[in-house]
Design a protein around this nucleic acid. Structure first.
Ligand SMILES: [Zn+2]
Ligand SMILES: [Zn+2]
Ligand SMILES: [Zn+2]
Ligand SMILES: [Zn+2]
Lengths: 145, 145
DNA sequence: TCTGTGGGTGTAATATAATTACATAACGTC
DNA sequence: GACGTTATGTAATTATATTACACCCACAGA
């Protein structure tokens, strides 16, 4: 259901091309993330996965690990939350190590940029393997909130 | 004790100038962070605060909140850890909203840069109020590790 | 001096986030 | 059919952080 269908189909293709198996659980978690359109807590995903009965933590954390490893989702570190990757599926998500997140604290939406440059003022000789870049503030629609 | 004395004296002056009260608990937590020279977990601080007996969580979290609010320490979001601010105390730490951390995953040391620029490719109209910028990798001494 | 008031701390309980360990299932390979 | 690999189910536990309430103390005004 929802307008997430298109995105999910693209994810399906993305996984098929790379030998990644987007199983029902993983696909369902991704769908929940896409539908939310913003940061979602792992325990909220758990509740949504099995309304009445409720899934166990490992179920959702394993799915989230798969999705983040594959580049289909990102963890929002400062919120302990997760969000679907919003970037255009036409480019390779595995080269995906430099992501900037712009999180509106008012309407809870996330904008995302994938950048390809290294930090300008790293210490001499420091070799970056992973980066966490999150900006919090207000989006254009929420400046007046 | 330790080579942290100099830094702590500077923190003392810094607080005095601004009407911030660096109480014994807060000072002790800062000292532990400075001595560690890298990311420290809140529960490790708790254990160190009262060896035998152990302090309660609010004690250390309140101290950490004070230190981070004041700019004397930073939270390392992706590690759920905390680190003393390493920047030169001569400049104002309250204008301290843009900090870059370079964390060596090998030797566990942190380098820090305070930058004064905004992100170049923020969404149109997005107003940043807080940023989290963390780079993980290997420092110059650990490239071979 | 009395009396608030506000900031800081002590303590217990609770909430939130994530991992470990072990059993089971599904699938392809030999 | 036996086996290795990958994914899932389930229970228990660990790790991280907050809430609520009591107490203390320095300080300001009456
Ligand atoms: Zn992305
Ligand atoms: Zn907004
Ligand atoms: Zn700093
Ligand atoms: Zn190193």
């Amino acid at each position: 259901m929802s307008n997430a269908t298109h995105t999910l189909d693209a994810a399906e293709r993305y996984c098929a091309e790379r030998g990644l198996s987007l199983t029902p659980v993983r696909r369902r978690v991704l769908e929940l993330l896409v539908d939310a359109g913003g940061p979602v807590k792992a325990y909220d995903l758990m509740a949504a996965l099995k309304p009445g009965g409720s899934a166990q933590p490992p179920t959702v954390y394993r799915a989230l690990n798969f999705l983040t490893r594959s580049g289909l989702a990102h963890k929002v570190e400062a919120l302990n939350a997760y969000t679907a990757c919003l970037c255009d599926y036409s480019h390779d998500k595995s080269g995906h190590d430099t992501v900037q997140l712009f999180i509106c604290e008012c309407c809870d939406t996330i904008n995302e940029r994938h950048i390809h440059k290294s930090p300008t003022d790293a210490p001499e000789g420091f070799r970056v393997s992973r980066s966490v870049i999150e900006y919090y503030g207000r989006c254009a629609r929420c400046v007046a909130c």
